[in-house]
Design a protein around this nucleic acid. Sequence first.
DNA 1: CATGGCATTTGAAACGTTACGATCGAACGT
DNA 2: ACGTTCGATCGTAACGTTTCAAATGCCATG
Lengths: 339, 339
Amino acid sequence: MARAGIREVAGLAGVAVGTVSHYLNHPDKVSAEKAERIRAAIETLGFVPNNAGRQLRLGTSRAVAYIAPDVSNPFFAEIAEDVERRASEQGLTVFIANSHRSREREDAYLALFEQHQVQGLLVASHEPIEDRLARSRQRGTPSVLVGQAGVSEEQPSVSLDDVSGGHQAAAHLLAIGCRRIAFVGGPLGIKQIGDRLTGASDAVREAGTATLEVVNATDRTLRGGRAAAQALLERPPELRPEGIFAANDLLALGMLQVFVDAGVRVPEELAMVGYDDIEFGEASLIPLSSVRGRHADFGSAALDLLVELIQNGVVEDPHRVYEPTLVVRRSSEGFVPRG
Amino acid sequence: MARAGIREVAGLAGVAVGTVSHYLNHPDKVSAEKAERIRAAIETLGFVPNNAGRQLRLGTSRAVAYIAPDVSNPFFAEIAEDVERRASEQGLTVFIANSHRSREREDAYLALFEQHQVQGLLVASHEPIEDRLARSRQRGTPSVLVGQAGVSEEQPSVSLDDVSGGHQAAAHLLAIGCRRIAFVGGPLGIKQIGDRLTGASDAVREAGTATLEVVNATDRTLRGGRAAAQALLERPPELRPEGIFAANDLLALGMLQVFVDAGVRVPEELAMVGYDDIEFGEASLIPLSSVRGRHADFGSAALDLLVELIQNGVVEDPHRVYEPTLVVRRSSEGFVPRG
DNA sequence: CATGGCATTTGAAACGTTACGATCGAACGT
DNA sequence: ACGTTCGATCGTAACGTTTCAAATGCCATG
């Protein structure tokens, strides 16, 4: 079962090992005759080049890693696919990993990928992680923060202006006539979430005519949304919010389901806006208004930045911030302000 | 920026390289005093063990790979998370890859992971792939086919009985009184899809009182479902099916949206059943009946089988087939047969 | 005081690859 | 016929780790 190595191939083909290596890496440099002999030898031996040997010699791999909190959240899955597509155009391989929002697993993967000498890291995280990435960078592995603005000049990032996104969402709810607005989400310690609330709260303050309530949701998933909605339904109707801005689409969709089940009319009685604009939001029976940050090529942008960083060591303009746009759909179109 | 190696650590700590290696791999074998010196040296040098060196020496890695057609389909994402969780319990790392349903990319990843000397492969594919996996196996990399029954005794697999699933779905639609049933999906050349149709068609034949129509959908996504539904809406109402069995939940959800939009009453006029039971199906405003195959631990089962295969070289009972169960929800509960 | 046993530590070999300088042979110009 | 050049081919030295047999130091025992 011992795998054949480049030596066996060379032996069988009657050439030197160096020639086999040439055949593999610079095929143009080797004569047609020997090339054919080598090809045949590889074929009969079932030779598979051993990446460890190559990598050891070269000192680096042709791979990058993408660490996401949760690939089953379509927001991250869609980015992953985009990254992968772009990377393969560049001849790079992507290792995808799920941190499951656990700092421990994040660290484990960070260490793992450093050991594997990936060329760089794409990291999406809800945790403050810049100090850990700085350490990796000092040891020679560059990284791009995805979805979270970097602080240091040395830490490039591709992110969304969540304050603006939150502002747009709340301003929209105000514009259609909602007076009692609720922000559903949490924990607020997470920067992206806190920023969305900040923007929303700014908008409410500017308007001066409405109130903003914060409803904490520990779990930013469908389940979490269902729980939050159930809690709101316990209140007498006059104390329920008229407009809800959810910290992400999963939350919003979970709430939407419970509300509709309970006979709450959306959007007439209650307008809803989500965040991220995942595909399932648009496909919901009451299509969900949402704040769309990611462009179609958000992942590509991150990868391109990483490649630039790998090649030049620095990047021009390290903190790329994209402006999100509000996509209005039925869940917030047709709210009827109370007389 | 040259990364420090084990030699530098040894030098700084004043011990032999072998001792540093011992410290890393068998910490109990090294005296407390030297251990502390080594720890300090590693700390100051920022030493990161190089996986290529280790792997070259060891001849194998502690990783397995999971190749899926499409991680943005929650069905595969949920399996991926489960696999990953179980693997980390076993001290294994999982490399996740998206083949994007392209045979070319499948092959590229197969080759890549062989080169990386992963211990084994978990492969979910819609293509016939057994011959290619057989080649990998002969070269020493075992694999488990996920979601597709293996043919050869040598190719272990974890799959669902799609014929039974299709039968259950159609039998259910018949039981609630549907006479004109449509199977929406394709291409039928894909085994999993063809099996579902076979089961459905068996059920219809057994009943003897209904018809089964096949509506081809090229794209098994939300988009594909919307397109298929639109096509059905062009027909005069009396020619539309009364019950729809969709080849997967994404298709069903896409159709559901278009139907509800167009004022078709689901389930009263039209009952729907999907397949896979993804989380979004349950969370839909009209919760989707679906055929649930995967147990909570479908991914774990696959990984356990792979581990057994790696350790023993063979497995007891290579083709594990799970029986799916129909989950009835609102989308098919309350159909009103026409007088 | 010599001996043996034990726990630690050592140093070198080996893993499979690539790059590099050396070598070879043929073709060409004079 | 000879020297030169150029492309193809060769052989070997690394790359960083682990393992293993051998060496060392220490202690207890005879």
